Computed example of a mutant assay.
Amino acid sequence: MPKQDRSVLRRVTLLIGQLGRGGAETQIVLLAQGLHARGIEVHVVLMSKGGPHERTLRDAGIKVHRLGFARRANGAPDLLRCLRGFARLVRILRNVRPQVLHAYLFECRLLGAPAARLAGVPVMVAGWRNSGEPRRRSVLALERAAGWMADHVVANAVAVAEDARTVLKSPAHKLSVIYNGLRPRAFDAAEPQVVDTDLPVVLCVASLTSQKGHSFLLEAAALLRRRSRPCTFVLIGEGPERRCLSELARESGVDARFLGERSDVQPFLARADVVVLPSLWEGMSNAVMEAMAMGRPIVATAVGGTPELLEDRGVLVPARDAGALADGIARVVDDPDLAAALGRAARAWARKNLDVDAMVDQHIELYRRLADTRLRRRAGDGRRA
Rank of each mutant, 00 (worst) to 15 (best):
M292G: 02
L140R: 15
S207C: 07
I236M: 14
R81W: 06
L342H: 01
Q18Y: 09
W128E: 10
A385M: 05
W349R: 15
C82Q: 11
F216Y: 15
L366C: 12
R384D: 10
G295N: 12
E247Y: 08
P2L: 06
V315K: 00
D273K: 09
A76P: 10
T232K: 11
R165M: 10
L199A: 13
E251G: 09
I92M: 09
V167Q: 13
V332M: 08
S48Q: 11
R94A: 13
V160Y: 06
A24C: 05
L19D: 07
N74H: 08
G34T: 07
A358T: 13
D312N: 15
R97H: 14
V154L: 15
R271H: 12
E365W: 15
L224T: 02
D196G: 11
L105D: 00
V195T: 05
R243A: 12
G20N: 08
K352C: 13
A87L: 05
K3W: 11
A60M: 06
A24V: 01
A161M: 11
A300G: 03
R243Q: 14
E282W: 01
E143S: 14
L83K: 11
A146Q: 10
A300D: 13
A326C: 06
T13W: 07
L19G: 02
R384K: 10
R84V: 05
P122Y: 07
K174H: 05
V254A: 07
L142S: 03
N286P: 07
G112P: 01
G343I: 00
R91Y: 07
L316S: 02
A293I: 04
P77W: 02
G34S: 08
R136F: 10
G295V: 03
R296C: 03
F187W: 12
V299C: 01
D361F: 13
P267A: 14
N156L: 03
Q18W: 14
F86R: 03
I40C: 13
A330S: 04
C108F: 00
R347S: 11
A291P: 03
V44I: 08
D273I: 04
Q193H: 13
G314H: 01
R6L: 11
G181W: 11
L199V: 13
V45I: 12
Y104M: 00
R225S: 06
A161R: 13
L203D: 07
R243Y: 15
S263C: 05
L235N: 10
V303E: 14
E282V: 00
V96F: 09
S176V: 04
V195E: 09
H36M: 12
E25S: 02
L338S: 10
E311T: 04
Q27P: 09
E219C: 09
T209F: 11
R250G: 08
R165L: 07
F69S: 00
A330L: 06
G295E: 07
A126R: 09
A161G: 06
P192M: 05
A256L: 12
R250M: 15
Q27C: 04
R109M: 01
R262H: 06
L105P: 00
R374I: 04
I178Y: 07
H102I: 00
G181E: 08
T26H: 12
R376E: 11
G380K: 09
V154T: 13
V29L: 10
E143Y: 02
S170Y: 08
L280V: 05
H43M: 10
L79N: 15
T197Y: 10
A350F: 06
S252C: 07
A324H: 09
N130A: 10
